[in-house]
Computed example of a mutant assay.
Amino acid sequence: MITIGSVKIDIHEKERALNGRYALDSADGVKRLLRDYHALCERRYKGDYAASDILLDLHTAIERAGLTNRQRLALRLVFVDDLTQTDAGIALGRLTGKQSSKQTVNRLIAVATAKIARVFESWARMGEGYSLTVNETEGER
């Protein structure tokens, strides 16, 4: 019988580090992830599989979150196109025909990130690779 040694490389280390950095079951964690969107894209192109996985999950969560078109646009304008919320409000107004202020964009982003966080939370509850960071007893009050 041949005994094969154990592998000393932790292949999930980067993945756990990303999951720990972004508490994706909270709107703030999702916002943090969205703010790092460009850096994660760059890491993905350099072969970082963990960055690829988290970006793919982010896109899937956005699709499943049931966002309105205005919420999607607000996210794209601020986090992908790097516009300020004021400039995003102007662009959103042009694109949708509805005048939008900085406060409107802020509200759209807040609601959208909360919806996305709920998707990540449901994945965590189903054991889909994410862990819960929100204290469950706080939610029961």
Rank of each mutant, 00 (worst) to 15 (best):
S131F: 06
F120S: 07
G66T: 03
K98T: 02
L55D: 07
D82Q: 13
N135H: 03
G93H: 11
D36L: 02
L56G: 11
E136C: 01
L58F: 10
R35F: 10
Q71M: 08
E128S: 06
S100Y: 04
E136N: 00
A110K: 12
G127T: 06
N19F: 05
S100K: 09
A124I: 00
R43H: 03
T104M: 14
L75R: 06
H59P: 02
A74R: 08
D87V: 08
K14Q: 15
A61C: 02
G47Y: 09
V134Q: 02
I62M: 14
R43Y: 05
K14N: 12
A124N: 07
C41D: 08
A110I: 01
N106T: 05
E121R: 12
D25W: 00
R64N: 12
I116P: 04
A17S: 07
K115N: 10
A114K: 11
A50M: 11
T96S: 15
Y45Q: 14
V119F: 10
D25H: 03
T137R: 07
D48R: 04
R44G: 15
D48Q: 03
E121F: 04
E15N: 06
A124Q: 00
K115Q: 13
D82W: 04
I54L: 15
T60S: 15
R21W: 03
A117L: 12
R70A: 14
K102G: 07
A112D: 08
R44A: 12
R43T: 03
T113M: 08
L55W: 11
R44C: 12
R70S: 08
A65I: 03
T96R: 10
D36G: 01
I62A: 06
T133L: 04
G127C: 10
N135F: 01
A61W: 01
N69Y: 11
A39F: 06
L73S: 08
L83I: 02
D28C: 02
R21H: 04
E42T: 10
N106P: 04
R16C: 03
L40W: 05
A61Y: 00
A27N: 02
A124W: 01
A23K: 13
K14Y: 05
V111F: 08
I109E: 09
A112Y: 02
G97K: 00
Q99M: 07
K102A: 13
D87A: 14
N135A: 06
E63D: 06
R21M: 10
D81K: 09
R94A: 13
Y22H: 09
M126E: 13
H38D: 13
D87S: 15
D48M: 11
G66W: 02
A88W: 04
W123K: 03
Q99E: 14
L34Q: 02
K98W: 14
Y130E: 01
L34M: 09
T84Y: 12
T68W: 11
H38W: 05
A117M: 08
K98V: 08
